[in-house]
Design a protein around this nucleic acid. Structure first.
Length: 573
DNA sequence: GCCGTTTTCGGCCCGACTGTTTTCAGTCG
């Protein structure tokens, strides 16, 4: 049983309890526990062994026992009993937008509706009409919700959300009445997947802005429209929420709508303890408004350091901010170069010189050109003969730059037996070696893990690329024992990549945080095949920030000389 | 079900919008 699986059980228990109209605080306790487990960087099995389960926030005696039971028996009696009392389809019904626990319970008790199909049938035949609180509009909304479910309203990857958010923001910015505008929500926190998009504006004319917002060409349907809050559905069925606030509330509103929910709850509780109420309109002492125009002002008011949006997940950042001991996480400006770019030597679209000039203009100090290795024929794997030519070309280019360095690297395949796709004497000639798995995804967990571990133990390997192999919309990551790999990386001083390619973002935030906490180095690589993709570095920086990584943890923030020392030390040992 | 510089019992973040009511419950974030 993995952390994620256990979290899922708790989440499902919360849902079942909500349909049963149980104590809402008990329900939230399960939700909170599930959330904290999802974000946990330690393994529950380890915590259980050492009796430290209750050190997880939101896990008390009772839930600790339940976790132990799941770990020991593979299931939970309480959960199995609950499931028996609730038809599985009822939980599906809860996923329909506009249908919450109260409605689901009502539908089940009055009409025995226990599946989405049945609900749709009843809604269409008019049998819902007349139930307490249900008239035309409600039925219409239920049917719309069912349509959305059928289309599969799943979370979208971050890059997609950023794209949509900026199209709305650019559009709204074109109106002079929009004085201030910002993204909020999980987009601003740069979560790797996003459910819907939140935008916040300050304006002299709220009604007009709401009007223009719902009239945007990408809007397919208006879900809600008020003076301070409107919601629409785009032509791609993505929900975008607009909030209109007064300038003196901008900070408190931005903070509130940025979340996360858990962060907000913790922050408000903290404020209450010191006698203040915090809502989206500001910080209040009784009726008196104390502050709220900027986020900085609010954090400052409570004697806290500013907490970056990427850190706001109630993972201990609030306590650290109070102690003024937040880690100084990296920012884009700290990054001195991209360590994973493909050139025309393999399957990239540009020459090394073009890439170098592009990166130099971006203000970078170096770039590592890491083309595929010889056996990866589908991606134009570079033969040894061509690799030697590439080394010469890089030398020549470097001789022409004073302020920029091209690293001649390779993304070398980890072969089935864990050996590398170039011989040692060739690897020795390179400036940077990234090792990666591109074949045999279906192998067992231990096989894949051993392949990567063997690669880590090769002294020439600097970085493991896209360690878990996940590819958005195509496949989950292949099964590896990341804890084991992290242990080995710490010994061998091998870095793990945060692959910045939008569909990858691999390592993800949680895994990257595990690496940081264990003292394993991270490397940012865009895997760019064309120049524009080098901008993906910003996505990788977001992941690193969410992993609480500092400049010391990310080798891209080092000078080339320091990277060289790091790898020489390993090679000589 | 969790948790404790008001507490081991009695709290638990807070407000907007909708659709149904005729003052409010449900849903959402």
């Amino acid at each position: 049983m993995t952390n994620q699986q256990i979290a899922k059980i708790f989440r499902e228990i919360a849902q079942i309890l909500s349909v049963k109209d149980e104590n809402p605080f008990r329900i939230r306790a399960y939700e909170k526990a599930a959330q904290n487990i999802e974000n946990l960087t330690q393994d529950l099995k380890e915590l259980a062994k050492t009796g430290k389960l209750t050190s997880i926030p939101g896990i008390g005696q009772d839930l600790a026992l339940k976790i132990k039971e799941i770990l020991e028996t593979g299931t939970l009696k309480y959960y199995e009993e609950l499931k028996k009392s609730t038809p599985p389809g009822l939980l599906k019904i809860l996923e329909i937008p506009s249908v919450g626990p109260k409605t689901a319970k009502l539908l089940y008790e009055k009409l025995n509706i226990d599946s989405i199909e049945k609900l749709e049938e009843f809604a269409k035949s008019g049998k819902l009409y007349g139930l307490p609180g249900i008239r035309e509009k409600t039925i219409e909304n239920i049917l719309k919700g069912i349509e959305l479910i059928k289309k599969g309203k799943e979370r979208m990857p971050l890059y997609k959300a950023l794209e949509i958010a900026s199209s709305f923001i650019d559009y709204l910015k074109s109106f002079s009445i929009v004085k201030k505008i910002s993204e909020a929500g999980s987009v601003r926190r740069r979560k790797d997947t996003i459910k819907d998009i939140d935008i916040l504006v300050v304006t002299s004319d709220p009604l007009k802005v709401s009007e223009e917002f719902v009239n945007f060409k990408k809007v397919k349907e208006i879900l809600a429209k008020g003076t301070t809050k409107s919601s629409v559905l785009t032509d791609e069925d993505i929900q975008v929420d607009l909030r209109v606030v007064d300038p003196e509330c901008f900070g408190s509103a931005l903070m509130y709508f940025t979340g996360s929910k858990a962060f907000n709850i913790k922050f408000r509780q903290l404020a209450l303890k010191s006698g203040y109420k915090v809502n989206e309109y500001g910080v209040f002492k009784g009726e008196k408004r104390v502050c709220g125009a900027t986020e900085e002002e609010i954090f400052d008011f409570f004697g806290m350091e500013y907490i970056l949006p990427e850190l706001r997940e109630d993972q201990g950042e609030i306590e650290l901010a109070l102690n003024k001991s937040l880690p100084k996480v990296i920012s884009f400006e700290d990054v001195k170069g991209d360590l994973h770019v493909h050139s025309k030597y393999s399957d990239g679209g540009y020459t090394i010189r073009e890439i170098a000039d592009f990166c130099r203009k971006l203000g970078f100090e170096y770039v590592a050109i890491c083309d595929h290795s010889q056996s990866l024929k589908v991606a134009g794997g570079v033969s040894i003969e061509n690799l030697l030519k590439k080394i010469e070309e890089v030398k020549k280019i470097n001789s022409e730059y004073k302020d920029f360095k091209v690293l001649c690297g390779a993304e070398v395949d980890i072969l089935n037996d864990g050996s590398l796709d170039y011989p040692q004497e060739i690897l020795e000639k390179l400036d940077l070696v990234i090792a990666a798995i591109h074949t045999g995804f279906k192998q067992s967990k231990s096989q894949l893990t051993q392949r990567i571990i063997k690669a880590c133990k090769n002294k020439y390997v600097d970085i493991i690329a896209h360690p878990t192999g996940r590819l958005w919309g195509q496949r989950e990551g292949y099964e590896i024992d990341l804890e084991e790999i992290i242990k080995v990386c710490l010994q061998t001083q091998t870095a793990l990549e945060i692959n910045c390619f939008p569909q990858r973002l691999d390592l993800n935030d949680i895994n990257a945080k595990k690496a940081v906490e264990s003292g394993v180095l991270l490397s940012l690589g865009t895997d760019a095949h064309i120049l524009d993709q080098i901008h993906f570095l910003e996505l990788g920086v977001s992941v690193a920030r969410r992993a609480w990584a500092t400049k010391e943890n990310v080798i891209n923030c080092w000078s080339w000389e320091k990277i060289k020392e790091w790898r020489q030390k390993r090679i000589k040992s």
